[in-house]
C-alpha cells in the first residue's frame, strides 16, 4: 500500500448512509428500504433520522424490490439496499420487470460486493452482479472508487430519472477523489497520466491499478490509470482515446471475468479501436472464506497481477 499509505481511508458504506441523511433533509420524497441489513449497509443512519420514511422489509428482498417500485410509481425517490449478492441475484427478475421495465426511479445500493466480504465466504460474495445488472435495458451501473465518489454517485442517482445500481464494498478505501471534481454518470476519469498502457479500474481494484502503475514506473513503464466507475453506460470516448494514445489496456475488477468491466471495455475496443486487452478479474470461480487481503492474493487481484497484465498487454502490442 505504498502509494496510498498517506491517504485517508474511509468507508464507502458510511459515506452512503450519511449521503442518504443529507438527501432526506433535502427532499421529503426520499424513502429508504432495507432487508434486515441496515446496520451493515448503513441505511440505519437514515432510519434513525427519518423513521417514518424508512421501511425495514425483513429478510424479504423480492418484496422489498417491488415495494420500492410501488413507492417510486407514487412519486417517491427510492433507495433500496442489501448485500450485492441478494439484491441482484435473488431479485434479478423483480428488478427487470417491476423496476426497470416501467422506468422506476429506484436506486439499488448494494454493499459487500466482490470477494472482500471476507470470512462469510462464497455464498455471500457477489462476483456476477455487475454482469447481470448491466444486462438489463436502461439500467445504470456505478462502482465508486472511494467514499467521496460514493457520495457524488448516490446524489447523482437520486436526481437521475431511471434505475441505478451502485455497488459498494465492505472494505474501506483510500480517498483519491476530491469534493471539487465534478461527477457525471457515464464519464470516466483519468486518475494518473501515462503513455505506454492504460489501466482501467473500478472500486477496490482502482487502487490496485494505481499501485500497479507505481510498480511499473520503477521499470520505466508509464501507465495511465482511468477510473471507469460508471460501468454502464461506459465512457466510450475515454476508452477509445486511451486506446489510441497508449495502444495497450488492462481492466481490473473485483468480479468474475464474465460480463463485468473487462467485457464492457472489450466490447468498445473490439468495435471501435482493437488493441491488446488483458483482464484482471476472478477467473470464472466462486469465492471462499478468508481475510480480504488473503483472498485478493489467492485470486490474484493484486497490484502485482495488474502490473503483470500490463506487461503482457504491452508485449502483445509490440508484436
Amino acid at each position: 500500500m505504498t502509494a496510498t499509505a498517506s491517504r485517508r481511508v474511509l468507508s464507502t458504506r458510511e459515506a452512503y448512509g450519511r449521503t442518504l441523511v443529507r438527501l432526506g433533509e433535502l427532499s421529503r420524497d426520499v424513502v429508504v428500504l432495507d432487508a434486515d441489513l441496515s446496520s451493515s449497509t448503513q441505511t440505519s443512519l437514515f432510519a434513525a433520522r427519518f423513521p417514518d420514511r424508512f421501511f425495514n422489509m425483513g429478510v424479504s428482498e423480492q418484496d422489498m424490490i417491488c415495494t420500492a417500485a410501488g413507492l417510486s410509481l407514487s412519486g417517491k425517490i427510492v433507495f433500496a439496499s442489501s448485500f450485492a449478492i441478494f439484491i441482484t441475484g435473488r431479485c434479478w427478475e423483480q428488478i427487470r420487470n417491476s423496476v426497470a421495465l416501467p422506468g422506476c426511479n429506484v436506486n439499488l445500493v448494494a454493499t459487500h460486493g466482490g470477494l472482500t466480504v471476507g470470512k462469510d465466504g462464497a455464498s455471500h460474495q457477489a462476483l456476477e452482479d455487475i454482469a447481470i445488472m448491466r444486462a438489463i435495458p436502461t439500467m445504470t451501473v456505478i462502482v465508486p472508487g472511494d467514499a467521496v465518489e460514493t457520495r457524488k454517485a448516490v446524489e447523482a442517482a437520486a436526481w437521475y430519472d431511471g434505475p441505478v445500481y451502485i455497488r459498494l464494498t465492505r472494505e474501506n478505501l483510500p480517498v483519491i477523489d476530491s469534493d471539487e471534481r465534478p461527477f457525471r454518470i457515464g464519464v470516466g476519469w483519468e486518475v494518473r497520466p501515462g503513455r505506454d498502457v492504460t489501466l482501467f479500474g473500478i472500486g477496490l481494484m482502482l487502487h490496485a491499478a494505481l499501485e500497479a502503475a507505481e510498480l511499473l514506473a520503477h521499470e520505466g513503464i508509464s501507465a495511465r490509470v482511468v477510473n471507469l466507475s460508471t460501468v454502464k453506460p461506459v465512457d466510450e470516448h475515454i476508452i477509445v482515446r486511451c486506446a489510441v494514445e497508449t495502444g495497450a489496456a488492462v481492466t481490473a475488477e473485483e468480479h468474475n471475468v464474465c460480463g463485468g468491466l473487462g467485457d464492457a471495455v472489450g466490447e468498445v475496443l473490439l468495435r471501435r479501436h482493437p488493441i491488446p486487452l488483458e483482464r484482471v478479474a476472478v477467473r470464472d470461480a466462486f469465492g471462499r472464506s478468508g481475510d480480504p487481503k488473503e483472498l485478493l492474493e489467492y485470486f490474484e487481484l493484486t497490484p502485482q497481477a495488474v502490473a503483470a497484465a500490463a506487461r503482457r498487454a504491452i508485449a502483445r502490442a509490440k508484436r
Binding site: L71, L73, Q94, P102, G103
Partner: peptide
C-alpha cells in the same frame, strides 16, 4: 405496460410481484 398505456398504474405480467408493488403504493399514500 405503465409507460405506454394511460390508466395502467404498474407494468405487470410476471406473476407474484403486483401485491408488493401495490403495497409500495399503499405505503406512499
Amino acid at each position: 405496460d405503465s409507460r405506454r398505456c394511460p390508466g395502467v398504474e404498474a407494468s405487470t405480467g410476471s406473476l407474484g410481484q403486483g401485491l408488493s408493488v401495490g403495497h409500495g403504493m399503499a405505503l406512499a399514500l
